[in-house]
């Protein structure tokens, strides 16, 4: 089988970004603290990676108020979902091809 490694999206080379996408793929939306807890990273680190995904239009932001406190939650966009699913497919192909 001919699998191109170039099909793997650069954005998903990073473990944390891959984790953010995995979590958002199976949840309608998650807020910042939920993501932070799941990934076990610092605020700044998480914010940087989310920004990267935001710029690629893979992740959308929803700002609201919960108990009068500002709450930022994130969701996966259509484009993000497509890119993530494609990434998964390529990963599986690479592994199958090397067996």
């Amino acid at each position: 089988m001919n699998v191109s490694f170039n099909d793997l999206h650069k954005a998903f080379e990073n473990r944390i970004r891959l984790g953010i996408m995995s979590a958002l793929a199976v949840n309608d939306s998650l807020d910042f603290s939920a993501l932070k807890e799941l990934l076990d990273v610092t605020d700044g680190n998480l914010a940087t990676h989310i920004k990267t995904l935001e710029k690629l239009d893979f992740v959308g932001v929803k700002k609201s108020f919960v108990d009068r406190k500002p709450n930022t939650s994130y969701f996966i966009t259509g484009e993000g979902k497509k890119a993530f699913e494609n990434h998964l497919k390529v990963l599986e192909q690479i592994i199958n091809a090397q067996k």
Binding site: L18, S22, A23, A25, L38, L91, I95
Partner: peptide, 21 residues
Amino acid sequence: KEQDYLNDLTEIRSMMERSSK
């Protein structure tokens, strides 16, 4: 390496499960 890709997939699966179950 192949092992890295396998790790990636395992981690994706575990994150999906941990974040929704």
